[in-house]
Design a protein around this nucleic acid. Structure first.
Length: 931
RNA sequence: GCCUGAGUGGUGGAAUUGGUAGACACGUUGGACUUAAAAUCCAAUGAGCAUUGCGCUCGUGCGGGUUCAAGUCCCGCCUCAGGUACCA
């Protein structure tokens, strides 16, 4: 019987399905292990070879853990809400659910073909009402909660209301918007509307008028992480800033905990660093500059600074164009100019603003504020280099020590005062400076009571002074913004919210799920309302209108890993028992593009559920691995301009050519199948070729896989030809899992050859079973045990590529030894199972076992078989390896030295030289220093 | 600009703790088997020099350093990839 991968793979996939081999029971007495893949969005294009990379790695690990007696939770599901299905619906009228369902079927079929050990009984889909019921439920809990800074956790809003009723809000420390202080008496006299408005400032899911990223092309608002360089991540459309009433999640309340939690998870440093940057903690002070002159009655301008020590050098102030005070403080003679500037700044796209950062623009408002430490008046400017979204949207400018302030000051000829000097350096005239001195260290000068202090001490002293004067305080600021949670889209979770007299209220929990309604068109209404406004009777049973926005993509993906623990529970999100058992994800594999999105939202969502007492771990993903991307490898042909003649790669420079993409399926080892090419497209039917060495050689380039580049490799054909086991091994063999790498099918043959060679250990050339019961030799045992040790080590450190080569070495050596012994070949089949499960199952059965191999104990290696009596010492002279010398392993250092120096080969290297030193590292190396 | 990661043969990559650089595989070349092809097997394959053989020199992005010994550690650069950006 030859190695028939098609038959074997079909057979075992069916067996696994019928026997539910990989079903994970909630068996609480077994040790658990939770291996998770980031679930996919089922796109219409199906899987390409890049998708399964991470799934194969996690599958190997999951299978390995099963062999060690762990109860392994290894589920899969679908992030089913997404823009492509909705865009398709807009174009064709096909309900996104139909498109999604179809795509999921295809995904499932492709996933099954690769032989993953998923427990499909636990599948979830974010668009399934039974699933999104809990997404909606969580939203309601967020709506009903506030963040208590005293206990540092989310708490029910009812408790907060009780405090308001008895003591007002003065003693409350909450993560909230600016709220005026009120007493219990005032609270109790407020009307409901007013009370609700105040509570909205405390809720963790809140409705507010905020500046959002509006994407006109997609007709929706986007979260910050969905915008890259001023363009939408999906589709690359321009994004504008717009003031809109939107739902947001108060993720900022969790900023510090999100930061602290990174300390205890096992993630790549780059990933932690990206999250730290995204959260963007900075320590400093918040303080107020009193307005001067006519505006004095308006109070002060709040600013945040990380350098309160430089306050004596603050020579002007700048407000963001959106700042509310501008209108009030601008003096009549500057009003026209300032208005025009503000208008201009607001109309600039985000992209323009970002690309023109070097251009200095701004206007003087005519107003002055008082520097609280110098007592001097400083002019107040408006400029768009100050962002409304960070800090207070206003800054104190210290041009001597901040490059942006410096550029601004130079441009508008504002005074520059040095207040920090490097130690032992002469102070120079700031007029002569070419750039600011952005010093984090140094000694304070020109700064009154701060003079002579180091920067670090001066910061402390300045904050103390501000607090004493009651004009400022030490403050920690975060770059992280609250997550905008409304989307003006159809294909998403409806909010479980209705409006009564304009105020939002949650639906009763027993009415969940609130199902996505049918609409006649997947477009906004004529009046610009979101698509759900088209739904008939989009009201509660009492007739109150329901929210028409839907939730964003990250809503459903933020806690799916928890739902897998107990996916069919219709009473609660998941049972306490299930959660106490599975706890959190032990190993999470997915792409690093989710660093600032999904992985932050999930951590936030999980922490909130932790605060509610639902999740028992406050970090959801203990270990994280980012699989690298598989890049495409495009092939090119070179058409001589204006002709239908194509010139081979190395001859192309002799002509004026144009490079055209050519389908990689017609190219083998850079050689074009010219006949296939002629048949490819009608325009190439009469193509002529200028060959080199009788072949047409294509050019190539590594770039993203995409249809238009004709470089997409779909796994189906490869599985058909070589089988899933070969594909699995080959994807792992390509290189380290976390590294990006170009896809190239050159080399898959080698892996296929390896499996056939392995098969021939069990079957003779005449296709006869040839496994014998003979005792294995020392050499054979050594090969086996060396391999066991290597494979175990490699899986444990996620080095799957070296694992594959270890198998190759093992099979090469056993073939050389002509080993066909059960004693060796049976453990080898188990060893191989995580990587090539179909083949391993087949061999296991042929070896006479009933049932699946998947839970058989993983082989242990025994050190005694690896012991060597002698070792071939590499002998170096002055660090260069010259020859090898076989010596007993237990030979003492002194004797090794003697043996080396008296060896015949040593003489020519010692000729005429004196031995200065001999280094002997037993069992490793000998180095002779001579000269 | 800042942060992170990476640079090793024609190619993908290996070298786990400072100890034989290039494992394993692809590709290439030559050979065996075959009427032929496929499949399979064997041999060679970092570069340069030398060649009858044993061989010699150089070599892990560049320049320094530490060490008996550096792909690996330290200092200074260069290039590429990703993230991020008037974040005060």
């Amino acid at each position: 019987m030859a190695y028939n991968h098609q038959e074997i793979e079909k057979k075992w996939q069916q067996y696994w399905r019928e026997h539910k081999t990989f079903k994970a029971e909630n068996k609480f007495d077994l040790p658990k292990y939770y291996v998770l893949d980031m679930f996919p969005y089922p796109s219409g294009a199906g899987l390409h070879v890049g998708h399964p990379l991470g799934y194969i790695a996690s599958d190997i690990y999951a299978r390995y853990k099963r062999h060690q007696g762990f109860n392994v939770l290894h589920p899969m599901g679908y992030d089913a809400y997404g823009l492509p299905a909705e865009q398709y619906a807009i174009q064709t009228g096909t309900h996104p659910e139909i498109t999604t369902e179809k795509n999921i079927k295809r995904y499932r079929q492709q996933l099954d073909q690769i032989g993953f050990s998923f427990d499909w009984d636990r599948e979830v889909r974010t668009s399934d009402p039974a699933y999104y019921k809990w997404t909606q439920w969580t939203f309601i809990q967020l709506f009903k909660s506030w963040y208590n800074k005293k206990t540092d956790k989310a708490e029910p809003l009812t408790e907060l209301v009780k405090q308001f009723e008895t003591a007002g809000n003065a003693g409350v420390e909450a993560a909230c918007d600016e709220v005026e202080t009120f007493t219990a008496g005032q609270w109790n006299q407020m009307e409901e509307k007013q009370q609700q408005e105040i509570l909205m400032h405390y809720r963790l899911a809140y409705l507010s008028e905020t500046m959002v990223n509006w994407c006109p092309a997609l007709g929706t608002v986007l979260a910050n992480d969905e915008v890259k360089e001023g363009l939408s991540e999906r589709g690359g459309h321009p994004v504008e800033r717009k003031l809109m009433k939107q739902w947001s999640l108060r993720i900022t309340a969790y900023a510090q905990r999100l930061l602290d939690g990174l300390e205890k998870v096992d993630w790549p440093d780059s990933m932690k660093e990206m999250q730290r940057n995204w959260i963007g903690r900075s320590e400093g002070a918040s303080l107020s500059f009193q307005l001067a002159g006519a505006s004095a009655a308006l109070g002060g301008i709040e600013v945040f600074t990380t350098r309160p020590d430089t306050l004596f050098g603050a020579t002007f102030m700048v407000l963001a164009p959106e700042h509310a005070l501008i209108e009030k403080i601008t003096t009549p003679e500057y009003k026209k100019e300032v208005d025009a500037y503000v208008q201009w700044a607001k109309n600039r796209s985000e992209r323009e603003r970002m690309t023109e950062v070097k251009k200095v623009t701004g206007k003087f408002t005519g107003a002055y504020a008082v520097n609280p430490l110098t007592g001097k008046n400083v002019p107040v400017w408006v400029a768009d280099y100050v962002l409304s979204g960070y800090g207070t949207g206003a800054i104190m400018a210290v041009p001597a020590h901040d490059s942006r302030d410096f550029a601004f000051a130079r441009h508008f000829k504002l005074p520059i005062i040095q207040v920090v000097a490097a130690e032992n350096e002469a102070v120079t005239d700031t007029e002569q400076w070419d750039e600011s001195y952005d010093a984090k260290e140094g000694i304070l000068i020109n700064s009154g009571f701060l003079n002579g202090l180091s920067v670090k001490k001066a910061i402390r002293a300045a904050i103390d002074k501000l607090e004493e004067l009651k004009i400022g305080t030490g403050k920690i600021n975060y770059r992280l913004r609250d997550a905008i949670f409304s989307r003006q889209r159809y294909w998403g979770e409806p909010f479980p919210i209705y409006y009564k007299e304009g105020l939002p209220y949650p639906l009763p929990e027993e009415e969940l799920p609130l199902k996505l309604p049918e609409v006649d068109k997947y477009l906004p209404t004529e009046t610009g309302e979101p698509p759900l406004a088209r739904a008939k009777n989009w009201k509660t049973k009492d007739g109150y209108p329901l929210e028409t926005n839907t939730m964003p993509g990250f809503a459903g993906s933020s806690a799916y890993y928890l739902r897998y623990m107990d996916p069919h529970n219709d009473k609660e999100y998941f049972s306490k028992e299930a959660n106490r058992y599975w706890r959190n994800v032990d190993l999470y594999i997915g792409g690093d593009e989710h660093a600032a999105g999904h992985l932050i939202y999930s951590r936030f969502w999980n922490k909130f559920l932790f605060d509610l007492g639902l999740a028992c771990e406050d970090e959801p993903f203990q270990k994280l691995i980012n699989q690298g991307k598989i890049q495409g490898r495009s092939s090119f042909v070179y058409r001589i301009q204006g002709t239908n003649r194509f010139v081979s790669y190395n001859l192309r420079k002799q002509h004026k050519t144009q490079a055209l993409y050519v389908d990689i399926n017609m190219v083998d080892n850079d050689v074009l199948d010219t006949e296939a090419f002629k048949k490819w497209l009608p325009e190439f039917a009469n193509a002529e070729f200028i060959l080199e060495d009788g072949k047409y050689i294509c050019g190539h380039e590594v770039e993203k896989m995409s249809k238009s580049k004709h470089n997409v490799q779909n796994p189906d054909e490869l599985i058909e030809k070589y089988g899933a086991d070969t594909l699995r091994l080959y994807e792992m063999f390509l290189g380290p899992i976390e590294q990006d790498k170009p896809w190239d099918i050159k080399g898959i043959e080698g892996v296929f050859r390896f499996l056939k060679k392995l098969w021939r250990l069990y079957f003779s050339d005449e296709d006869k079973w040839q496994v014998t019961a003979d005792r294995a030799t020392e050499a054979e045992r050594k090969v086996l045990h060396k391999t066991i040790k290597k494979i175990r080590g490699d899986i444990e450190r996620f080095s799957f590529n070296t694992g594959v080569s270890a198998f190759m070495i093992c099979v090469n050596e056993l073939s050389d030894l002509k080993c066909h012994k059960r004693e060796i070949l049976e453990p080898l089949a188990v060893l191989l199972e995580p990587y090539a499960p179909h083949l391993a199952e087949e061999l296991w059965q042929l070896l006479g076992h009933a049932g699946s191999i998947s839970r058989v104990d993983f082989p242990e290696y025994e050190e005694k078989y690896l012991k060597e009596d002698s070792f071939a010492y590499p002998v170096s002279f002055n660090g260069k390896m010259r020859f090898k010398l076989e010596l007993p392993v237990n030979m003492p250092k002194e004797e090794v030295e003697k043996a080396v120096l008296s060896a015949e080969e040593a003489q020519r290297w010692l000729d005429g030289k004196t031995v200065r030193k001999v280094i002997v590292v037993p069992g490793r190396i000998v180095n002779v220093v001579a000269g």
